[in-house]
Amino acid sequence: MNLPWDEILIGVALGAYTLGALALVIYFFSQDESFRKAGVPLAILGCAAQFVQLAVRFETTHVWPLLNLYGSLSLFSAMSVAIYIGFAFRYRLWFAGGFVLALAAIFLAYGVTWYEGTMPPVPSLQSYWAKIHVPIVVSSYAAFLVAFVFSCIYLLKYYAARSGTGSTARWLASFPSLPQLDAIVYRAVAIGLPLISIGIITGAMWAHEAWGAYWQWDPKETAALFSWIVYLAYMHLHTRHAWRGLRTNWVSVIGFASIIFCYLGVNIWISGLHSYKV
């Protein structure tokens, strides 16, 4: 099926994210407000184009668009930007936008490489759970991506501040303080962890209907459990004063690596019940 609107909207989103990332990365380094003013509308435009694309795709094909890597990666990048925009508006965090948009553009572009056209879903995916479980899980991944970006900025600021008091440290001093950055990471994880918990639970309910057991130690299930454990460890460590900050932010980085393995590694490299690529 030829879907020109689909391709046009994806093109718009990719272009907006790329230009927006460029503008906001320059804003990150230069703190020139004009680049922020250029980057923010591009982020909003790209995000809106992606949600419209997913809606148009569903309306045109009548196939839930998140059942393959192309669709789910599209939602992943859109939700990452949407969650980031929410955080940025709430806490004035536009300085980090370039990195979120760059990652969103990379994941979206990678998703496009998996596009094979529209296919009817296999029987196991013909369930109302697809409309509940998949968006929740993908949104949790998106929240963890936002946490990952702020953890990286935390670590950058921490090590730069420790290594010297020169221009880099003065430049980084204009960003939120380390405890404030840590609180932002905590808030992003506090969105992601309940979502991935709900995602695992709804996935178990779906598996109970489709495969006869709510838990089968399928690679995807176990990889999601592993990520859940990592973020649970993050939450527990965050209650300890000595661990809160540097160490918990490293845990957040490890957590996102585990999410990427769970999301892409398992789908692509490991065969199992969740090997839905195209």
Binding site: W217, P219, T222, A223, L225, I229, V230, A233, I270
Partner: peptide
């Protein structure tokens, strides 16, 4: 987590 990862 490590044991679970082995299982994956």
């Amino acid at each position: 987590g490590v044991l679970t990862l082995f299982g994956v």
